[in-house]
Design a protein around this nucleic acid. Structure first.
Length: 851
RNA sequence: GGGCGCGUAGCUCAGCGGGAGAGCACUCGGCUUACAACCGAGGGGUCGCUGGUUCGAACCCAGCCGCGCCCACCA
C-alpha cells in the first residue's frame, strides 16, 4: 500500500486542514493573464452585512461553488470574487445601538470624536457623518470577518484576494462615476414629487423595496354635502386625511353620480369645497362608489392628483405625524385637534370629531386590506412630496422598457421559468427608479449646489467633481472654485445631503469586482461576466438593477447566464429560512455534520426549487464522504499494476463503459447548470461501484481463485486493479465540485497537486479502455448478486455463506455476456457451482445454499 | 384580479407518453479481512380530483380542488 494512504482514514479536522492548504497553495487564485474566452467570471452576490449568515446562504453559495469548481477543472480561469454589502439601513441601526450614537449630518466634522465610553441607545450622542461612517466601517469589519470564516469553512473556492465591500473606496468610485455618467446622459434626474416614505427611517423608498401586508382597517362613511345641502356618502379607510381631501371621484359610467360630476361638495367638519370628477380608476363596487382623493393616501391618489391636475394639500409630515399647520384653505379650528398626532392617533380622534358633528353615516365596517410597507419597515408607508434623484429604468419610457425586456429575453435563465418574474416586473413598472435615500451610511451623491443670495440651493446648477477625483464626500470635500468657509453660506455651496440606495451601488457589482475605472485590463478579461447567481426574491431589485446599469453604460448584458437558487424552508415547509436561521446557524451545522455533508445536502436541491431543511439528508452526505474515504483506501490498498497493465476482464471493461456514460451525463448536466443531476448521476454510479462492482471483483483483485484449483490469476488481478484505479481517479474528480474536502484528501493519497486543479474527466479515454464492452453486463451481474443476497437474507445466513449451486437462466445474448463474468460471480457469490443456461422466458435465478 | 410553479410511498424528492423509482424513516437479517458511525434484504403508492386525446397517460389537453411564490390602483 502506498505510504500516503492512512490505515484509519477519518473526516476529523478535514475542513481546517484543507482550507489552510488551499490558501497557502493559492489553489483558487484567479489567473489574470488569461484572455476572456478562457475565463469564467462569476458575479457573486455580496451578502448584506448586518446580522448573521443563515442556512439559505449555504444553499445558494454552494450551488455557485459547484459551478466554479466544475469550470476551474475544465481549464477555465475562474474569476470568483466575494463582496460584502455593508451599508444601508440595517447597518446603521446596528451601529446606532452598538455605539449609542445618532448620526446628525448637519454637524461639522470633528476629527477628535470618540464614541461614548458607556453607550446608551436611549440617549444617543449626536455624531457627524464622517465619524458615523467610520463607526459603521469598524463594526462591519468584524461581521465580515465572521462571514468569511463561515464561507471558508463551507469550502467556497472564491479568490479572497478579489474581495470588495460596497462601501469601500473602489465601490464608491464606481458608484459615483456611474451616477455622474447617467447624469451626463440624462438618465439620472431630480424631481420634486410625491414619493413613498418610511416615517420611521425618515427616507424615501423605491417601488422595488415595498411589500404588501394585510392589515385590519375600517370603512368610515362620511357625509359630504352638496351645494343645496343634500348629503352624499363617501367611504374611506383613512378619515384622518379628510383635511387633505382635494376632490371626489366617481366612475364615468356610474349612473348614480352622473349628475354630481362637475359639481362641488363640501367636506364634513372642515367645510372645504372640493370638485367631483369622473375617472375610470374609481371603482363603483368599492364603498359608495365615490372615492375621496387626498394628497396623499395611496398611489391612486397620486395618479388622480396628477391626471386631474388637482391642488396639493399636504397633511402628513415626514415623521408620520400630521403637520402643525393645516393645508392652505383648510380651517385651523377643527384641524388643531389633529395637528402633531400620529396618523393612527389622528384617525381615532377625527372619528370622534366626525361622530360628534353627526357626520358619520353608518357604523364602521371592519375589513382586512393590503397596505404598502417598506420591506424593512414597521409602519405603513406614507406618501410625501420631496426632492429625489431618479434613474430611468423604463418605467416612464416605453422604448427603454422594450429594450430592457429584450435584455431579459437575451439572458439565459436557470431555471427558465424565472424569466417570467423579470418580465412581470419590468412590464408593471409605474415609474423610474428612486435612487436617493435620506440616510447617512451609504455612497454620497457626488455633487454640491451653489447657494444663492438667500442661501437657497440652485438645484438646476449642480457643481460636479472631476471624474479622477472620485470618490468624494461632498460633506467634507469642497467643490472647485470654493473654499471650505463658504459651506452653507449665501453665495457659497451646499452638499447634496443624500446617499445612493444600496441597490444603486450593488447594481454595479460586476463593474466593482472587475475594477472598472481603475483596471481596464481586468475589466476586459472578465466583463461581461458568465454567471450571476442569486435568489429569486431580488430579481426585481438586484438583477433588474444590474441589467439596467449595464445596458445604459455598456450596451450589453452584464452576464450571459443567471442561476436562481430557491429558499430553505422549515421542516414543516411553512416558514422561511429566517425563523430556522435563528436556531440553525450555518457554522453550527457545518461543525456538526461536516462541510462536505452540508454541501451535499445543498447540492441535491435543484435551482429554483425551495428545499426543506432536513437533518436526515445531512447524514447522507456524511455517509457518502466516509464511503469515499474507505473505498479509496481499499482500492489504493492493492499494489499498482503499473500503467502497462491491460484491462482485459469483461466486468472491468463494462464498469468503465458505465463510468464513461456517467461522465458524459454529469458533464452535460453541469453545462446546463444542472448541478443536482450531475451529483445524482455520479452518486448512483459510485454506490453501484461500491456495493456491486467492488464486491464482484475484490476476490479476483486479491488474486484469489477460490477452489478452482488454478494458480493465482495475475492478469485478472492486474485487470481488476487497473480498472479500479482508473475508476477511482475519475470518481474522485467527479465528486470534487461537491465534496471538495474529502476529494482532495483522498486525491492527496496518490496524486500530486490538488484535485481541484485536476482536469475534469472526459469519457473518451474510458471508452478506449473499455473497448467492445458488454453494456448489459453491469446490470446482469448486479441482478445475479441481488438474487444471491436475497436468498441468503431469506435463509437468514451470513452473506459469506457458501452457495452450493447457482443456476442462471437468461437469453442467449445475456448468457454470452454473463459467461465473461463467471469467475467474478462465482467468487462474489461464494458459489461452488455456477451454471449459465439459455432459455426464452423471463430471466430466472436458482440459488441452492450449501448445507 | 393577472402571472409563475407545485400537488408521486410516512417524510424529502426524481421521473414528464409505453416496466411506479431513489434517499430517509420503518421491519427483518448479517461482526462479510475497505467501511458495524457498516452491509444485505423486505414491506409500503387507485402518481390531488373529473373529463378528454391516444393502441397506451404519473407524464399531453381542458376544467376543478388544495398549497406556495411573484405582480397589481390597497379609496
Amino acid at each position: 500500500m502506498d505510504t500516503r494512504v492512512p490505515a484509519k482514514p477519518s473526516l476529523e479536522g478535514i475542513e481546517d486542514r484543507w482550507a489552510e492548504r488551499w490558501e497557502v497553495a493559492g489553489t483558487y487564485r484567479f489567473d489574470r493573464s488569461r484572455p476572456r474566452p478562457e475565463v469564467f467570471a462569476i458575479d457573486t452576490p455580496p451578502p448584506t452585512v448586518s446580522g448573521e449568515l443563515h442556512i439559505g446562504h449555504v444553499l445558494s453559495y454552494t450551488h455557485t461553488d459547484t459551478v466554479a469548481r466544475f469550470q476551474r477543472m475544465r481549464g477555465k480561469a475562474v474569476f470568483y470574487p466575494m463582496g460584502w454589502d455593508d451599508n444601508g439601513l440595517p447597518t446603521e441601526r446596528r451601529v446606532q445601538n452598538h455605539f449609542g450614537v445618532r448620526c446628525d449630518p448637519s454637524l461639522p466634522y470633528d476629527p477628535g470624536f470618540t464614541p461614548p465610553a458607556r453607550p446608551d441607545p436611549k440617549t444617543p450622542v449626536p455624531v457627524d457623518r464622517p465619524n458615523f461612517v467610520a463607526l459603521c466601517e469598524r463594526l462591519t469589519a468584524t461581521d465580515e470577518q465572521a462571514f468569511e470564516t463561515v464561507f471558508r469553512r463551507l469550502g467556497l473556492s472564491v479568490d479572497w484576494s478579489l474581495g470588495y465591500t460596497t462601501i469601500d473606496a473602489g465601490s464608491r468610485r464606481v458608484a459615483q462615476l456611474g451616477f455622474l455618467r447617467d447624469l451626463a446622459r440624462g438618465v439620472a434626474y431630480q424631481l420634486d414629487a410625491p414619493t413613498m416614505w418610511d416615517v420611521d427611517f425618515n427616507t424615501a423608498v423605491a417601488q422595488a423595496e415595498t411589500e404588501d401586508r394585510e392589515l385590519p382597517g375600517a370603512y368610515q362613511t362620511l357625509a359630504f354635502s352638496t351645494v343645496d345641502g343634500a348629503v352624499v356618502e363617501v367611504q374611506t379607510t383613512r378619515p384622518e386625511l379628510l383635511p387633505a381631501c382635494v376632490a371626489v371621484v366617481a366612475h364615468p359610467a356610474d349612473q348614480r353620480y352622473a349628475g354630481l360630476v362637475g359639481q362641488h361638495l363640501r367636506t364634513p367638519l372642515f367645510g372645504v369645497r372640493v370638485p367631483v370628477y369622473a375617472h375610470p380608476l374609481a371603482d363603483p363596487e368599492k364603498g359608495s362608489g365615490l372615492a375621496m382623493v387626498c394628497t396623499f393616501g395611496d398611489l391612486t391618489d397620486v395618479t388622480w392628483w396628477r391626471e386631474l391636475a388637482l391642488p396639493a394639500r399636504p397633511t402628513v409630515g415626514r415623521d408620520g405625524r400630521l403637520l402643525a399647520t393645516p393645508p392652505a384653505g383648510v380651517p385651523a379650528g377643527p384641524y388643531a385637534e389633529l395637528a402633531g398626532r400620529t396618523v393612527a392617533a389622528a384617525r381615532r380622534r377625527i372619528v370622534e370629531l366626525l361622530a360628534g358633528a353627526g357626520a358619520l353615516r353608518a357604523e364602521p365596517r371592519e375589513i382586512t386590506h393590503p397596505v404598502k410597507f417598506y420591506e424593512k419597515g414597521d409602519r405603513p408607508l406614507e406618501i410625501v412630496t420631496s426632492r429625489q434623484w431618479y434613474l430611468g429604468n423604463g418605467g416612464r419610457d416605453e422604448a427603454l422598457r422594450r429594450a430592457l425586456l429584450a435584455r431579459g429575453d437575451e439572458l439565459r435563465w436557470h431555471p427558465a421559468t424565472m424569466r417570467a418574474r423579470y418580465q412581470n416586473w419590468v412590464s408593471g413598472l409605474t415609474g423610474d427608479w428612486l435612487i436617493s435615500r435620506q440616510r447617512h451610511y451609504g455612497v454620497p451623491f457626488p455633487l454640491w449646489y451653489p447657494l444663492d443670495g438667500a442661501g437657497e440651493p440652485r438645484y438646476d446648477q449642480p457643481l460636479l467633481p472631476a471624474e479622477d477625483a472620485l470618490p468624494i464626500d461632498p460633506s467634507t470635500d469642497v467643490p472647485a472654485g470654493y473654499v471650505p468657509e463658504q459651506r452653507g453660506k449665501p453665495g457659497g455651496f451646499a452638499a447634496d445631503p443624500d446617499v445612493l440606495d444600496t441597490w444603486a451601488t450593488s447594481s454595479l457589482s460586476p463593474q466593482i469586482a472587475a475594477g472598472a475605472g481603475r483596471d481596464g485590463d481586468l475589466l476586459a478579461r472578465v466583463f461581461p461576466m458568465d454567471l450571476r447567481p442569486q435568489a429569486h426574491d431580488i430579481i426585481r431589485t438586484w438583477l433588474f438593477g444590474t441589467v439596467v446599469r449595464s445596458h445604459l453604460e455598456h450596451g450589453t448584458l452584464p452576464w450571459s447566464d443567471v442561476a436562481i437558487s430557491g429558499w430553505v424552508l422549515d421542516p414543516d415547509r411553512k416558514k422561511m429560512s429566517k425563523s430556522i436561521g435563528n436556531v440553525v446557524t450555518p457554522l453550527r451545522v457545518l461543525q456538526r455534520f461536516g462541510s462536505d455533508a452540508v454541501r451535499h445536502w445543498a447540492a441535491t436541491a435543484r435551482l429554483g426549487v425551495d428545499t426543506a431543511f432536513d437533518e436526515g439528508q445531512l447524514r447522507v452526505g456524511r455517509r457518502l464522504a466516509t464511503k469515499l474515504l474507505n473505498a479509496s483506501r481499499f482500492v489504493l490498498g492493492f499494489t499498482d499494476p503499473g500503467p502497462a497493465a491491460a484491462i482485459t476482464a469483461a466486468v472491468d471493461r463494462a464498469m468503465l463503459a458505465r463510468l464513461a456514460r456517467t461522465v458524459q451525463t454529469a458533464t452535460a448536466a453541469f453545462e446546463r447548470y444542472g448541478h443536482a443531476e450531475a451529483l445524482a448521476e455520479t452518486e448512483t454510479f459510485f454506490w453501484w461501484f461500491c456495493d456491486d462492482h467492488l464486491e464482484l471483483v475484490k476476490a479476483r483483485a486479491y488474486g484469489d481463485q477460490g477452489d478452482t484449483g488454478r494458480p493465482a490469476d495475475t492478469a485478472g488481478a492486474h485487470s481488476a486493479v487497473a480498472a479500479l484505479r482508473q475508476a477511482l481517479d475519475v470518481v474522485q474528480r467527479l465528486f470534487a465540485p461537491f465534496l471538495p474536502f474529502v476529494t482532495d484528501e483522498v486525491w492527496s493519497w496518490w496524486r500530486d497537486g490538488s484535485v481541484h486543479r485536476a482536469p475534469w474527466p472526459v469519457p473518451e479515454p474510458l471508452h478506449e479502455l473499455a473497448r467492445h464492452p458488454h453494456p448489459e453486463l453491469t446490470t446482469l451481474a448486479s441482478w445475479v448478486l441481488a438474487g444471491v443476497r436475497r436468498a441468503k437474507s431469506e435463509a437468514k445466513v451470513s452473506m459469506r455463506a457458501p452457495v452450493e449451486r447457482l443456476v442462471v437462466r437468461v437469453n442467449e445474448d445475456q448468457a454470452a455476456a454473463l459467461r465473461h463474468a463467471a469467475i467474478d460471480l462465482t467468487l462474489a457469490a461464494a458459489a461452488i457451482h455456477l451454471e449459465i443456461e439459455t432459455h426464452t422466458g423471463d430471466p430466472d435465478l436458482e440459488v441452492v445454499l450449501a448445507g
